[in-house]
Write a protein that binds this DNA or RNA. Sequence first.
DNA 1: CTGTTAGCGCCTTCAG
DNA 2: CTGAAGGCGCTAACAG
Lengths: 337, 337
Amino acid sequence: MADARARRALTVRDVATLAGVSPMTVSRTLASGQGVRPELQARVLAAVEELGYRRNENARSLRPGQSSGLIGVAITNLANPYYGEFAIGVEEEAAGWGRRILLGNTGEDQSRERQLVADFLGRRVDGIIVVPAAGTDTSHLTPRSLDGRPLVLASRLAPGVDADAVVLDDIGGAERATRVLLEEGHRRIAYLGNIASVITGQRRYEGFTRALATADIVPDPRLVLRGQQDVAAAVAAMTSLLDLPEPPTAVFAANNRNAIGAITAIARHPHVTEGTHVVSFDTFDLADLSPVPLTVVDHDAHELGRVAARLLMERVAGTRTEARVETLPVRLYHIVR
Amino acid sequence: MADARARRALTVRDVATLAGVSPMTVSRTLASGQGVRPELQARVLAAVEELGYRRNENARSLRPGQSSGLIGVAITNLANPYYGEFAIGVEEEAAGWGRRILLGNTGEDQSRERQLVADFLGRRVDGIIVVPAAGTDTSHLTPRSLDGRPLVLASRLAPGVDADAVVLDDIGGAERATRVLLEEGHRRIAYLGNIASVITGQRRYEGFTRALATADIVPDPRLVLRGQQDVAAAVAAMTSLLDLPEPPTAVFAANNRNAIGAITAIARHPHVTEGTHVVSFDTFDLADLSPVPLTVVDHDAHELGRVAARLLMERVAGTRTEARVETLPVRLYHIVR
DNA sequence: CTGTTAGCGCCTTCAG
DNA sequence: CTGAAGGCGCTAACAG
């Protein structure tokens, strides 16, 4: 009845008074009930119910040895459904371990990532999961700057950081997909990727060149365009390729933004055959309806998130010392209209 | 040099000892520096630097009157890029107010939402932003169960909850888009939506029927299919409509999942003209390349997030008493191949 | 089985 | 300008 807005936050003491017991009995009842007479437990729980009491987790975690129950997660771009799915995976797995997620979006900006990680540490998170932003300054990811708190890298590795990680089979997936193009007889194959300093991109590019090497092809630098971060940039990049005197007959897109841009550019382009074959690393909505032949390198972002959280929790709980890198498989599928 | 992993967490006391001052001088220096001799400040900051000390935010927020600096955000489906964008908006705006995001995904499950909110309160968040899950039990969103903490509803309203909110112009947008179909002469217009209990869906359906009413049309119940939560379900629903003796000539899809499903079904269906016009509330990747005439009701999810966070922060800071509902505009655009 | 004491890290209050 | 005392909410350790 009283205005909830006005009342001071409730404490164990309030509950204890109402139940006619000591604060410790309240604490014990709420913790497990171990060693408290059932009758008293009932009184305590009734008082909790009546007052609407809720334990203060922040105060709780202040005690030494207590965990904050929080995990910090820094993601480069939540607007990418792939990372949204990833975040859900992390959250679900973490919830299973009684942990809650503190989330930050870095927007591919290392200084923002550094700031987020610092903040996470200030809140005494139990561990941190990072999809590292592009860049080479990883000093904020060393054990020293992390106060020794566990770190798991996800989706990408970070240069000079020796931590647990979960990544995709970028090299193998890119190589297999590129080989599909080669088997279809393509020789002029373009590459569209994002910022070159993103390790995932480097790995996918490596797979791409490896496959070409088996056919004794050296990538034509004029057909390799990197740095497209969004669909609009990818459309522009692909259009410029199609306008070349000798346009490519196939494209390897290192992520779904670039694939969508490539497909859009091809569909719009008047002078070129619509047969240009596209490979997309990452799937996307409506891939099924691609107007051009499409090979998708698909993977399970949800599982990526779950594994990242699991690695972190095992590290928190366990005694593993050496860093462990898990590689998740990818799956190719083809859409030919 | 010492193994960071092993060392006990640092405290103001450690810094004070190294700097040769009292803990209070450290605290004051870190708070603002007000009333501390510059020379001592320098010593303190040097010690902080040397030790790598970081203030414990949890302990800090324990003091009465101190804010936790946390905002709880519960979203129905992070894998929808629309909500990912929303989350980024919330996070950016919140960061501007010095707040961090505690994120949870409800998966459209009210009990999970209830649990999340309870947990947020246990962590003494400064406020809560909720995209309410479908359902009618909103008892966990009353001021009483929220301990009087501010709440902002986003994207959807919740039945019986009198709180600040930011929503789209669902009714107006749906009405305008439907009118486009009518003006093109369509009379048999289908409706594809998600769970009927989601208020956003109700509002969009209301706009749909309002427009039909102006043309003296009563929706044909056989053409109204609700409850499709994912693309696969929407494909099935649309396919069943196309198989009717008199299939619809246009479809209003109340969200992008249903629109993608509808387009996919139409494109695959052998017996029907590809001219079936689709309206999609929400945009999606590759909308540009729709193989069927498409009208998109677009909106700014990022801004939705920012406004939600702003309403919340204003409520935390301010003295507003009556609930405020902000309505964001939508924008129509047409794709005709 | 239950209660008392003490202290986690920080900062408000008051004394020097 | 600086420091000492005390308490925020909770619970481990010990006493009864």
